[in-house]
Structures are given as C-alpha cells and as structure tokens.
Design a protein around this nucleic acid. Sequence first.
DNA 1: CGCGAGACGATACACCGTATCGCGGGCCGT
DNA 2: ACGGCCCGCGATACGGTGTATCGTCTCGCG
Lengths: 227, 227
Amino acid sequence: MTGPIWTRQAASKPERLTLETVVSRAVELADREGLDAVSVRRLAAELSARPMSLYSFFGRKDDLVDLMVDHVLGEMLVDRIPGDDWRSALKAVLYRQIEVGRRHRWVMSVFGTRAPIGPNAARHAEQSFEAIAGLGLPPERATRLLRAVDTYLWGYVTRAGQEAAARRRDQLSEQEWRESTDAYLADLTGKGDLPHVAAAGRSALLPGDDGFDEGLDWLLDGFERSR
Amino acid sequence: MTGPIWTRQAASKPERLTLETVVSRAVELADREGLDAVSVRRLAAELSARPMSLYSFFGRKDDLVDLMVDHVLGEMLVDRIPGDDWRSALKAVLYRQIEVGRRHRWVMSVFGTRAPIGPNAARHAEQSFEAIAGLGLPPERATRLLRAVDTYLWGYVTRAGQEAAARRRDQLSEQEWRESTDAYLADLTGKGDLPHVAAAGRSALLPGDDGFDEGLDWLLDGFERSR
DNA sequence: CGCGAGACGATACACCGTATCGCGGGCCGT
DNA sequence: ACGGCCCGCGATACGGTGTATCGTCTCGCG
C-alpha cells in the first residue's frame, strides 16, 4: 500500500474474477492440453489468482468439472431450429452437438461419471423436444424417442473420439498410430481364430468418424414405422 | 535366510505375483471403491507387494487401466451364442454386455479416453459378428450394422450409469438423491421456459435404466427395412 | 476512531505417478 | 570352487495433486 495511487491501481487491476471466466478458462485449458492439465494450481496461475481463491467459485474440484461440462452443453445450443420437417430439425440439433463434442473431447471422458442436469443440459433437452414438436407426440413418447436418439448420439461421440484420444495419449502421429495398430491387428488376427474380425478389418474394432447418419436413419425409420 | 526350511517356506510363500492376479485385483478394487481408489501404492498394498514391483507388469499406470478394461471386456464374452434367429443371438451378446457393464461402472469413465483393441475386445467383436452371421451380410455391411448397434449400446450403458455414479460421488442415498434432484428440477422448470422438459419430467434429463430394447428394436427394424 | 467479524489465501498434509540409482543375488569365467 | 561382474529389484526422492486448517488482514459498523 505504498507509492502513488496509479501504480497501486495498475498493479491491483486484475479485474475481479468471475465464475464465467474461471469456467471458460478451464475449458480452454482442457481443450488445449487435456483435462488432466486442469489442476487448481495451474488454472489459478493461468488466471493470475491464488489456488485457494478459486474455491470461492466451487466447493470441490469435481464441481468445477460439472460446471465445465454444462458450459460445453451451453455451446451445443442452436440459435434457431429450422422449421422444415422434424427430421432435419432434429438433425440440426444433433449435428451441432457432434461438432461441439469434437471440439471438447475431454467431455466424453467424464460424461459417464456425472449426471448432466445443469441449466444448459435442460435448455439443450428443451431444444430437442422443440425440434420434434411437429410430430405431435405425447410427452412420454417424445421422451422415449429422444432418449434413444441421445443414447445413440453419445455413444457415437464417445466411440468416434477413442482413436484420437489414444493417439494423443501415446503422442503418436496419425501415421505412426495407424502403422502400429495395423501391425498389432495383423498379428492378432494372424492365428486364424477371429475370422470375421480379420475380414472386416480395423473398422471392426475402431468405429471411426463415419456412419453416424446411417445408424441414425435406421433408428428414426424404425421409430416411424412403429407408430 | 535362517531357521528351519518350512518356516522360511511359509514366510516367503506369497505365491509369485501374476499379471492376471494384479489386473483382477485392480478390477475388484475399482468395483468396490471406484477407479480413483486404484493407485499403484494402494494396489500394491492390497497384493502385499511393493509399489514399484508392479511396474514390471505395466510401463505406466495408464496401461494398467487398459488391461483392466480388456479384463472386463473378457467377462463380456458369452459361452454360447444361441442358434435361434439372428436377433436373439445378437441380443444375447448385448444383454451380457450390459449386465457386465453394470457391474463395472468405472469402465464408462475411461471408455472415451482409450481405444479398446485388446485381445478380449477383438474376441468380443468376433462374437458379435458370429451372432449375425445368419444374415449372410457382406463383411462391410455387417460392420456397419454392428457399429451402429455398438454405438447405441455404449451410449446406453454410459447414460444409464450416470445417475448412479453421481449419487455415489455425492454419497447420497437413493431417496436423498431423488429428493434433491426433484427439488432442483422443479425449481429449474418453475420459470416457465422449458415447457417440454417440464411436461416430460425427470426422465427428460436422466434416461434411467429402461428403454434399451425399444430403441434397439427401432434400430434393427430400420436396418432390416433398408435391405 | 476503535473494534469485531468475515473473508481470503498461505501453509501444510496426505497422497499421487514414476525417475533414479544403490544394493544384493545369481551367473559366468577361470 | 571360487571371484567378480552384471543386471534387476525396489527403496528413496521429486514434483506434482486436492484441500483442511487457521492466521492475518480488511472492511463496516457502533
């Protein structure tokens, strides 16, 4: 508390921390270096704050992760639901979900360990209901449809991210990863058992990025036929 | 190295550690107290071994988790695939998968972060192909069917486990959890936006355990119709 | 102007994964 | 049969983690 005012002011100007900024910086950090990089100390340093100060925003580290997940679910909200047929409306919501999921792969690693019931999770659910409102289903049936679609979608996002996550973990280039897994799979199927897997190739074990639409259409067709 | 032989023998009888026992004890521990409880030190203590000794079985802790996952996938193998129609054969495989998944909920929390391509993952994939062999599909098409089914199944297991995982994390009884979430959801939908979510109730956000078969049947019906 | 309460954050603790390296036992050469 | 080397095991140590505790400092009020 010494020296001319402006000096003090400049030094103490770090602009009062907000929950919003804490969470979004945490999300950025997780995107950039993985969820493991998000430690209380590290995040505090990134925000020029003291570690324990962050605990005024959340009770335990794990709660921060809940907040981060809801933040991502917030990004999954669409601005406008197209007014065409219910299928393309629903797909607009789903594609947005996938696109955002791809940008925040770490979400998949914690999605199984917590219930996503935050405000943005609810808003996002609301949008899904809106998308299929044109079908005029009773709420109970609409719920069952969306549940199945949601199940399929999260399975897809999770499975699709596995390969990239594994590659990142082992710090392999795409080519290195492919070569090493190809060699391994060749070895695995070499003994002659596993004939179907051998015939199907690597995509039997590693789903990859394709095929979302095909399965979704089967699901929706099946639903429609069941009416 | 002193005293009568039998004494020495009895004292040094801890029966040479095996990879198999290390992994299955780790799985037990994770089942019992959650994946976080599986630390190298803790596991070593459980096995009356020294922490660093375990590193002769795996290069890094994370590899142990891979082994644990493959161990669980091994449990998912069925003894016999029923020879009836392809649908019930496939369902036999899937039900087993769900049942085992329910017993090892921690798997979902790491499923997104690694590629399940271990030997048991391959064997399990092989069984899935066998189950639908009766359809006589070309490998490429069989792969796409199984990919969609697998996607749906993993999404289901993950989503279904969320509620239990969250409850466990907060150490709430089933009733306490239900009461607190009900109160929260009532508050959330009280403002009047989110009308669909309000109408659908808690199952709009928390899928719960039901509805696997319904969605699966839609998926399979849709596939069948696409032939 | 003095004091009490409250929040803030420095410190400390128990635990984590694992790199390092000293020691001891087993094996090989003579 | 014995000496010496080498290699592998595991104790120790390091740099991290989450967070409980509690002293200190600030601000608002009487």
